[in-house]
Nucleic acid binder design. Structure first.
Lengths: 157, 157
DNA sequence: GGTGAAACGTAGGCCGT
DNA sequence: ACGGCCTACGTTTCACC
């Protein structure tokens, strides 16, 4: 079973410390990380590697400033489907996977099936997505947009 | 003016390429990145440093697997306030900033003021947050929870 | 923007606990 | 099973072209 290196037993406080440090700064050097958690570099690296292999750490990403990268419009959109079949869901999810404006797609409980996070250059770009992409999908029944005016807290990692 | 190294003029296609590569793998070595974008290591590093100093790249983070780190329950919650004063908003945002379960708080247009993303260990932990934290805030008027059953697309960086 | 070389960090074998 | 030491190797970084 590949990638099933299974984390033996519990994660101790050093592992927690490593994860916190890497969440804050994913590019910290192993040397600095080792010192921060009070381990020798080799022991520290072994733990990080184990956490990666166990699937606890799934990757590393640069975090970009939205407005400096041309994203001036963010909205959350709820989408309801007109059929609740597996085929309709899969068709919708395929279409969503191909749209770069869709950064997140969550399958939720409640009156509608999906919650999307949309990032676009401006309102005009969003309107285009709304009518030309969402509006043309045959499975889509109800669309409600909630424009983000600000994010007092955002720890998306 | 510190950190205002200002990106002179437009970002070219090499910069775009660098940002895409670093968003996919924030820990790629400068050597590999340089090769991927077709630059020498030193020129590549100069661009990355400039992007960081200009605030285009705001940081690097490890991405963790929610369920392997004890997060078994995720929900989006809309919150309406009973007063639309600045003071009420600030009090609410202060309370939210201190709650570790709240990973995101967005100020949105529509019938309610806020959309939160909540991450908790399980339903019981969420119930505790719902009644003991959200339920006791005097400004809060309406709470609606949408439990996340899955995320077919999730590019939260 | 590229080159080269010194400084630095990584990764893995080995041994002790 | 896990931590520390040592070292060969790879990477970063900087002055210079």
């Amino acid at each position: 079973m590949p990638g099933r290196a299974q984390y033996t037993g519990a994660m101790d406080s050093i592992d927690q410390h490593i994860l916190r440090a890497l969440t804050r700064d994913g590019r910290i050097s192993n040397l600095a990380l080792a010192e921060a958690v009070g381990l020798s570099p080799s022991a520290c690296l072994r733990r990080v590697t184990a956490l990666e292999r166990a699937g606890v750490i799934t990757g590393y990403r640069a975090v970009l400033s939205p407005d400096k990268t041309g994203v001036g419009f963010v909205a959350y959109v709820t989408v309801g489907l007109n059929q609740h079949t597996k085929a309709a869901q899969e068709a919708f999810e395929r279409a969503i996977a191909q749209s770069p404006e869709v950064r997140e797609c969550h399958n939720i409980t409640g009156a509608v099936e999906y919650l999307l996070r949309i990032e676009a250059a401006d309102l005009a770009a969003y309107k285009h997505f709304h009518t030309e992409v969402l509006g043309t999908l045959p499975q889509v029944n109800a669309i409600t947009s909630y424009v983000v005016m600000g994010s007092p807290k955002d720890e998306r990692a």
